[in-house]
Simulated assay, not measured.
Amino acid sequence: MSDLDELARRYLASWNERDPGRRRALVGELWTDDAGYVDPIVVADGRDAIDAAVAAAQRQFPGLVYRPAGPVDVHHHVARLPWALAPPGGPPVIIGLAVLVAGPDRLRRGYGFLDPVPVPTSDPGAEK
């Protein structure tokens, strides 16, 4: 298993971490200072914004968990991670693909692809 393969697995685990303090610590360990993440419904520049995007997704999909939907494919400094968002033990609600670009020891960029793309909801509980 490559270091990037392990980073990809930890990336997915960070999307499942419900405790805000532990999730923020995972985001801090995983992402570089100049990190960025984009998908069809969010653009997040920096660790704080990435953490806020994960928290918003958790509020939008309570009770659902992210799980691998295939092997992590790694070459050079890029990983492709297929995933599914589903109730524990249930069928996927969303199938996704994360393309992760690493720096020397952390993730620098993340690109998410979603099928279907969920309709954004207003998020009155958004963390500031």
Rank of each mutant, 00 (worst) to 15 (best):
S2T: 15
S2I: 02
D3E: 10
D3N: 09
L4Q: 08
L4T: 14
L4W: 13
L4G: 13
L7C: 01
L7E: 01
R9L: 11
R10T: 00
R10Q: 03
L12D: 07
S14Q: 00
W15P: 10
E17V: 08
E17I: 01
P20A: 02
P20K: 12
R22T: 15
R22N: 01
R22C: 02
R23C: 07
A25Y: 14
V27S: 01
W31V: 11
A35Y: 02
Y37R: 00
D39G: 13
I41M: 03
I41W: 06
V43G: 01
D45R: 15
G46F: 03
R47E: 09
A49C: 03
I50W: 07
I50M: 04
D51Y: 05
V54N: 03
V54P: 03
A57Y: 10
Q60H: 14
F61G: 10
F61T: 14
G63C: 06
Y66E: 09
Y66M: 14
P68Q: 04
A69K: 02
G70W: 13
V72G: 11
H75I: 11
H76E: 14
H76R: 15
H77Y: 10
R80Q: 07
P82V: 06
A84R: 07
A84Y: 05
L85S: 05
L85R: 14
A86Y: 01
P88W: 07
G89N: 09
P91G: 11
P91C: 00
I94W: 05
L97G: 06
L97I: 08
A98V: 09
L100Q: 03
L100F: 11
V101H: 00
V101K: 02
V101N: 00
A102M: 08
A102H: 10
G103F: 05
P104R: 01
R106E: 03
L107I: 15
L107K: 06
R108V: 09
R108A: 15
R109C: 09
Y111F: 14
Y111A: 05
G112E: 00
P116W: 04
P118S: 03
P120H: 05
A126V: 12
E127M: 08
E127N: 12
